[in-house]
Amino acid sequence: MSQVEQPLTIDEAYNQDNDRALKFLRPRFHEEKFPTIQILGYIGSLILTFGAYFLVMDHVLPPVSLLAVILALAVMQGALQIGVFMHVREGRGLAWQIVPLYLVFLIAMGMVGMSIWIMLFKSGVS
């Protein structure tokens, strides 16, 4: 016989969760009196952007490592935007969007990285 289940509150759901998967998706809301985190995020994004600009314009490193460094700065800034401005951990109940976000970044990096990799063998295809 099927039985109608009582809906769980968030806290009950977390407490029942043995493998801690739900803890990873537990929502957190931004609640401050003054937009300190937004201002710090803005200053941080300016520093990262102009930092990358001056690194390139002053040719401080050899080309390949320079590209690696500015790409790392871009990834840091992307993470900053997602964490600070996009409130990625906000959600009603569980912040499910985090799962497909991880997945799509994996796919996108694979797509770009493997395209570059396969075209290194140009002599074989042209």
Binding site: T49, A52, Y53, V56, M57, P63, L66, L67, I70, L71, L73, A74, Q77, G78, Q81, I82, F85, M86
Partner: peptide, 21 residues
């Protein structure tokens, strides 16, 4: 914000990368 992130990658991988020679 998503468009801002995409622009950061365009800025880095297209424009700045174009200046690394």
């Amino acid at each position: 914000h998503f468009l801002d992130i995409v622009w950061i990658f365009i800025f880095t991988f297209v424009y700045l990368n174009g200046k690394i020679v």
